[in-house]
């Protein structure tokens, strides 16, 4: 007799597909937030699977900070070509030029993405935005709903979230309100990697180790490139490194690693003892409260 037990990855996949189909069936105009990082790529891969053989029935939106690794843009374009999905680009640089947002002193465009994103979402009339957030990322996220409600300013209201019982999601909103949907809520970093390996998902090569010229700053390793040039008095070294997250190219650090294949990465992630954000995001080191604040502003 067959066991009729679904493996954990297939269970997670089935749940994510269920969520995406539910959103497409119930919301007017969904859109997938695509950063080019592994989580948003997994989301897009799941969207492709959820609606096959039809094309993904919603656009993806890239909030372009202008601080992109080229290989991330290349990977994005490969996905667009291959899946025929519609790509919407919201430009932060253009937002700066128009005076919608102002450059932050530390050069991070992480925070000023938010108004750009919200403006684009409003312009296109998106009422549901898929985000790649996972509950295991940090404590503030553990209580995040799969369907997360935003007021008409796009802001998260912690006191006004709906209970989620069984898999009966309620996406009803009033005119002007919207939801964020997190189909990967129940995935962990290891699940994501194991799935990427199992499905052989196309990622930017930043995620794999190779020899990079790097410089150490505040305990973090930054590649020496146009975004993070060498400063006076710094000595670069050549190390085998890879990226664990992909954010602004001027602020994302890499870690020492010899994981040159997806299998190596899975094994490394299974053994590693540091959270992703703790390891590589210069701008996220601030505090857990910072995360909560950004969520309230509508970033997530």
């Amino acid at each position: 007799m067959k066991s009729h037990v679904l493996s954990q990855l297939r269970s997670l996949e089935a749940e994510s597909i269920h969520i995406m189909r539910e959103v497409v069936a119930e919301m007017e105009r969904p859109c997938l937030l695509f950063s080019g990082g592994k989580d948003s790529i997994v989301m897009l891969h799941l969207a492709v699977k959820a609606f096959a053989p039809a094309r993904v029935p919603f656009p993806i939106m890239h909030v372009d900070t202008g601080l992109n690794f080229q290989t991330v843009l290349d990977c994005r374009d490969r996905w667009v070509d291959r899946t025929g999905v519609q790509l919407v680009i919201a430009s932060v640089q253009e937002g700066i030029d128009r005076g919608l947002v102002q450059e932050e002193p530390n050069g991070s465009r992480n925070r000023i993405q938010t108004p750009v994103l919200l403006e684009a979402a409003e312009k296109h009339g998106f009422d549901a935005l898929f985000g790649g957030g996972r509950r295991d990322e940090e404590k503030a996220r553990a209580k995040e709903r799969v369907f997360s409600f935003r007021d008409d300013f796009g802001q998260w209201d912690p006191k006004n979230q709906r209970p989620e019982i069984w898999n009966l999601y309620n996406g009803r909103v009033h005119q002007g309100e919207s939801i964020r949907v997190f189909p990967l809520s129940n995935w962990t970093e290891l699940d994501i990697w194991a799935y990427i390996e199992a499905e052989n998902i196309d990622l930017p090569d930043l995620y794999l180790a190779k020899e990079r010229e790097v410089v150490e700053r505040g305990g973090m390793l930054y590649e020496v490139n146009d975004f993070t040039p060498l400063k006076d008095g710094e000595t670069p070294q050549v190390l085998s490194t890879r990226y664990r997250t992909v954010g602004d190219a001027n602020l994302t650090a890499c870690v020492e690693s010899t994981a040159t294949t997806l299998r190596d990465v899975v094994e490394e992630v299974a053994a590693v003892r540091l959270t992703e954000r703790g390891a590589t995001r210069g701008d996220d080191k601030v505090s857990e409260a910072a995360m909560e604040d950004r969520k309230k502003e509508g970033y997530f």
């Binding site: 493996s7 954990q8 993904v56 199992a198 899975v266």
Partner: peptide, 23 residues
């Protein structure tokens, strides 16, 4: 049917390291 699909590995269950089910 494969036209809209990114290339996927063959029989995914075969090389999953994360085995076991979900509780």
């Amino acid at each position: 049917m494969t036209t809209t699909l990114p290339e996927t590995g063959s029989a995914p269950e075969a090389h999953e390291v994360v085995s076991g089910d979900l509780l």
